[in-house]
Design a protein around this nucleic acid. Structure first.
Length: 291
DNA sequence: AATTTATTCAACCGCGTTGGA
DNA sequence: TTCCAACGCGGTTGAATAAAT
């Protein structure tokens, strides 16, 4: 059994694309537009698998691609977005015009990982390499796809917006900093509420959480020059690297049912995770950026 | 100059998701 | 509701190139 192959393998080319193949693909897409990748190779006269054509176009031939080295600003943005999203390369790429998910993924693996290691930061967790203090209690209480990080005394649960079940009865039932959040289907006139409870275990039902991430509309862009790198020397000769952002950065996790919400917060919130309920049953979580 | 090792990145592969029949 | 083709994503591979010996 198993999945059938995406195309006939016997009569397809593999490996590097030739200039002629590139030109055929460009010409075809210019005339007919993107899409219907399965039938494209035959229509374009290419002995390639549809997937291969799609990848070649998206990662290399698209006219809006930016070529050349990544800038420092792009580096910082990638690091920040990865901190938020994890290895969601397509989501990260969506915030970097002209860059592809594949390009960013490669760049991450070859450059940024090393850069972060040199800073003493674990590229997966974005925490200091010698910091292993994650609350075991909370760690067992969040869905497997969520990411947990700590910032000072706060536990930050990220990436809880993976599952979406539109128009069904949905329950988001999770616990952050001892506050259990319940979000129910807006179609049934219910709303989100925060219920303090340190005792209740997480019960992961079906999440219906929209994640929107954006810099606050009324704030200036992050000045990366203001991120101060400190390397205090402790008694054992071990070094601990801390990066102290001079501003908190607003990261809005919108849990609810309205899409395309734009962050509207404009308050400095220091180093704590705070929550607020908006009038459209949205929860927003703010945290300072911690590189 | 030749060989080995490391690095980069385009391309592939497999799997999860989506949407139409 | 179920099935399945197509799409899209993330992890991995391997050829090409650069750097080191």
């Amino acid at each position: 059994m198993g999945r059938s192959p995406c195309c006939e393998k016997q009569h397809t080319n593999k490996g590097a694309w030739t200039k002629e193949e590139d030109q055929r693909l460009i010409n075809y897409i210019k005339t007919n537009g993107e899409g219907c990748w399965r039938s494209l190779p035959k229509a374009a006269g290419l002995l390639r698998c549809g997937k291969s054509c799609r990848l070649r176009w998206i990662n290399y031939l698209r006219p809006d691609l930016k070529r050349g080295n990544f800038t420092e600003q792009e580096d910082d943005l990638i690091i920040n977005l990865h901190n938020l999203l994890g290895n969601k390369w397509s989501l990260i790429a969506a915030r970097l015009p002209g860059r592809t998910d594949n390009e960013i993924k490669n760049y991450w693996n070859t450059h940024i990982k090393r850069k972060l290691y040199n800073r003493g930061v674990d590229p997966q967790t974005h925490r200091p390499l010698n910091d292993s203090t994650v609350s075991a209690t909370i760690a067992t209480a969040v869905p497997p796809q969520a990411q947990i990080t700590t910032s000072h005394n706060n536990v930050i649960v990220k990436d809880v917006s993976i599952v979406s079940n539109n128009n069904k009865n949905n329950y988001a039932n999770t616990k952050i900093n001892g506050t259990k959040l319940v979000c129910e289907d807006s179609n049934s006139n219910s709303s989100c509420s925060g219920v303090s409870s340190d005792q209740e275990a997480y019960q992961h039902q079906q999440l219906n959480l929209d994640l929107s991430i954006g810099l606050p509309s009324s704030r200036p862009q992050i000045n990366t020059d203001s991120l101060k790198l400190q390397q205090p020397q402790d008694g054992d000769g071990q070094q601990e690297t801390k990066v102290t952002p001079s501003h908190g950065v607003c990261l809005c996790y919108s849990l609810g049912f309205l899409r395309n919400q734009v962050c509207c917060c404009n308050k400095d919130i220091g180093n704590t995770v705070t929550t607020a309920v908006t009038d459209n049953s949205m929860y927003r979580f703010y945290r300072p950026l911690n590189i």
